[in-house]
């Protein structure tokens, strides 16, 4: 199959999945049995006039397909969906204003988790079945098993409470976000701990996957050849085994990065008070602001779906073997 055809096919699949997700979002918010969707969208203590207005605006007396089209029109095409809790707030621009916070958080964490997981994976593989390997693997397992929001609370307890007045954590600014263009140093300081908190579980997962892949790669013929050439063991490990094992890591990375930007970083944002898209969703959740949630869910999942498609396309560009699927 040619590369062009693979890409077109993947993009068609992407559009199809986006359509499926938007239908699912619509069904969850407008067609779940229980309360009246108009009352749900209006939020707590809404006047009957507001409910009636919403019913007319979303065409809730019309058949479901029409309602679906109305929702998509207001969400994606006209982007004029407004909140009924914070009256008059246009939800889509609000989301785009919050996106840089989430991107700052996820980018920084990604750099940290890639660097540290390579370190963990390579060291564990180099010391396979010895003490260092066992130690790193059990630490990775613990890292995977810690709920990120609880880790964030522990980090806050230590850095804002118990040890805040010692040299260790006196540099930590109060919880919150400072835009990069306003004060780069403060931006960095306010994000260091959230970065590490978010990265920990991924260091564990990627370290374990990388170790397994390197150990497997070390059995391959090209490694035997590299050794036979007389290359030093460190060079065999890093130039050859690691390089090949990174392919799996990059696929995984694309998926996780997309998932984190598309809502996965929510818990970290909430615990550290970072006003990103996840925090916006959480606020909407506590205020029962349904239009905001509809918008964050739709846009975030569209982002995840396009990120997944990007990964697949890049993968088929770099690795011709997968094109034959």
């Amino acid at each position: 199959m040619s590369l062009g055809f693979t890409i077109v096919k993947r993009l068609a699949h992407m559009v199809f999945v986006m359509f499926g997700i938007s239908v699912l979002v619509f069904l969850i918010f407008f067609a779940t049995p229980g309360a009246d969707p108009a009352a749900r969208i209006a939020g707590r203590n809404a006047s009957p006039q507001t409910v009636a207005l919403i019913r007319k605006e979303f065409g809730l007396d019309k058949p479901l397909p029409v309602q679906y089209l109305r929702m998509m029109d207001r969400l994606v095409i006209r982007r004029d969906l407004t909140s009924y809790v914070n009256l008059g707030e246009k939800v889509v621009p609000t989301i785009f204003r919050a996106a840089p916070v989430t991107l700052s958080l996820v980018f920084g964490a990604a750099v940290i988790w890639i660097v540290f997981s390579i370190l963990v994976g390579v060291l564990a593989a180099a010391f396979k079945d010895r003490t260092l390997d066992r130690l790193l693997m059990i630490l990775s397992l613990i890292g995977i098993s810690i709920p990120v929001f609880w880790l964030g609370e522990v980090v806050n307890l230590v850095s804002q409470g118990l040890l805040h007045n010692t040299w260790l954590f006196s540099w930590v600014p109060p919880l919150g976000y400072v835009p990069l263009h306003r004060d780069p140093a403060l931006w960095f300081k306010s994000l260091v701990l959230p970065w590490f908190t978010l990265a920990l579980a991924f260091i564990g997962i990627y370290g374990r996957v990388l170790r397994a892949n390197i150990v497997e790669a070390m059995q391959e013929d090209y490694i035997r050849l590299a050794r036979a050439k007389g290359l030093p063991e460190a060079q065999v490990l890093i130039r050859h085994a690691l390089r090949c094992s990174m392919i799996a890591i990059f696929t995984l990375f694309g998926l996780d990065f997309g998932a984190l930007v598309g809502g996965g970083a929510l818990l970290t944002e909430v615990v550290f008070g970072l006003p990103g898209v996840g925090y916006l969703t959480y606020q909407a959740l506590t205020n029962l602001d349904l239009p905001m949630i509809m918008a964050t869910v739709t846009y975030a999942s569209f982002f995840v779906v396009s990120a997944n498609a990007m990964v697949d396309i890049l993968y088929s560009v770099f690795d011709p073997r997968v094109r034959n699927d």
């Binding site: 229980g34 309360a35 749900r40 997944n308």
Partner: peptide, 21 residues
């Protein structure tokens, strides 16, 4: 492809606020 937490949040906010019938 649906982000896990957002799916859970969407389902929860609908179901847990009004129950289901």
């Amino acid at each position: 492809a649906f982000p896990i937490y957002l799916l859970a949040i969407s389902l929860s906010i609908i179901l847990i606020n009004s129950g289901i019938r």
